[in-house]
């Protein structure tokens, strides 16, 4: 990975027709650090994550992706630099684990490196030869596959929205190791969670008011 990408956001606010989700939210996430976003249910953590990764436009405020070497990444290119795991972002239930990785790898323009995908599946604790459609997975297995999908293309920015939910204790240990390795490798990690253990991984914190 070259350099890394810093994410800065200032005075973000989001309103839907009848509801202000949050306002005046600022923060920055540096390469090689973990920014933890906390806040009670309904405080807009997930909305903030979708705004930071460019899926939703903020009503107000600015977000910038800055390359370590200087220069800003334009909004339409953010997606090439980020990976995300979030509860409301699913994989294709009709496809099996390998087909899902193959699909995401191909549409990202990486081609399909079968050996790499097999290694990745083994790393997250899934059997690469299993051809059950993902819809038949347990929630924990589904979560592991989502994490594999998020790191497949070695993104500079990794968004994790409640990544430990549905994972067993062994899975949570593994997740901690993964976050640690990503951070040491210079990835910018942005983690939304209310789990006490996950909150401790953070090097900086942003708290959303309820």
């Amino acid at each position: 990975m070259v350099g890394g990408v810093r994410v800065e956001f200032e005075e973000l606010a989001k309103r839907f027709d009848l509801r202000v989700v949050f306002r005046g939210v600022s923060g920055r996430a540096e390469p090689g650090s973990v920014l933890v976003i906390t806040g009670p249910n309904g405080s807009g953590k997930s909305t903030l994550m979708t705004i930071l990764c460019g899926l939703v436009r903020p009503t107000r405020g600015t977000i910038r992706y800055l390359r370590a070497g200087g220069g800003e990444v334009p909004r339409h290119a953010w997606r090439e630099h980020l990976g995300i795991v979030a509860p409301a972002m699913g994989l294709y239930g009709e496809l099996d684990a390998m087909e899902n990785l193959r699909f995401f790898s191909t549409v990202r323009g990486l081609g399909f490196d079968e050996e790499r995908c097999r290694a990745l599946l083994r790393e997250v604790g899934l059997d690469p030869d299993r051809t059950t459609p993902v819809a038949g997975f347990s929630t924990g297995m589904h979560q592991r596959l989502k994490i594999a999908q998020a790191v497949l293309h070695e993104p500079e920015v990794l968004f994790l929205d409640e990544p430990g939910s549905n994972l067993d204790p062994a899975g949570q240990d593994w997740l901690e190791g993964l976050v640690e390795r990503q951070r040491e490798g210079g990835t910018t990690v942005i983690l939304a969670t209310n789990d006490r253990r996950e909150m401790e991984w953070g090097t900086e914190h942003v708290a959303l008011p309820g």
Partner: peptide, 11 residues
């Protein structure tokens, strides 16, 4: 099926 966000971010 909530697959749109990841497709949006990938392709």
């Amino acid at each position: 099926t909530q697959t749109a966000p990841l497709l949006r971010l990938s392709a």
